[in-house]
Amino acid sequence: MSAVANAVTAASASAGKIDPMEQFMVEPVLGRHMSLFGYDVSFTNSALFMVVVFVLLALFISGGLKRQLVPGRWQVAAEDAVSFIDNMVSVNIGAGGKKFAPYIFSLFYFILFANLVGVLPLSIVPGLHTFAVTSHITVTAILAFLSFGIVLAVGFWKHGFKFFTLFVPHGAPAWLMPVIIPVEFVSFMVRPFSLALRLFVAMTAGHILLEVFGSFVVQGFSAGGGLGSVVGILSFIMIIGVSALELLVCAIQAYVFALLTSLYLHDAVHLH
């Protein structure tokens, strides 16, 4: 965050020059580095926002622990949040999917809260800048490969080498197999990359867009004059629209990640 504050100072110093990539910088909080077994495991702004996500999620879900027969609003919200995942799991994984519900739950709500925290307009407070954990390929890739690893583990655990029949679609003629099997294999192996890239790209693009239009607002108004004001106002209207779109994208990307993981788990549990 201090880096962002520095960047803002630097930007305003250099006549409104704003780097839209600055927001993705990962810096140790308070500039302090930590290392473990020779690896740098500093508590960064990224880690800080992961913890923020955890705290917010824990607060939200703990509202569901009142366990009243006639629930209040908060309890209903938490119960609906849980039922939403249970529903997704039972519909998409089917029989034997119940035990994956905690994982899908953690995945969906971690991504959703990280996305939403990332677009909170807190930078209106000087020195405060939110950070979208999910706009980092390192984070999305870890989650994607975790999902992929669970799919592989469950598939081989349940079906052994029969799991490879996943690459042989039902009802396809035998002479097509030399084509279909490699295609299926490639599409299977691409899954973790598409999972990771989809979320990372969507969040990054949205944040760049917001930052670019934000810089247009700042530069337009600081340039002054009629044209500058018009640009500033138009960009501000644009930001409102893009923010609304971003809120939608936040939910959709979290949903897509969780839904695809459930569908992949369905393959692993049921083989087609």
Partner: peptide, 25 residues
């Protein structure tokens, strides 16, 4: 940053999974 991201994500995700997903849900 990969090590730090992995380290903290593992901790936070484990907290969410065991503390919320397995305990509260």
């Amino acid at each position: 940053i990969y090590a730090s991201q992995l380290f903290w994500l593992a901790i936070v995700f484990a907290l969410i999974y065991f503390g919320i997903g397995k305990a509260m849900v």
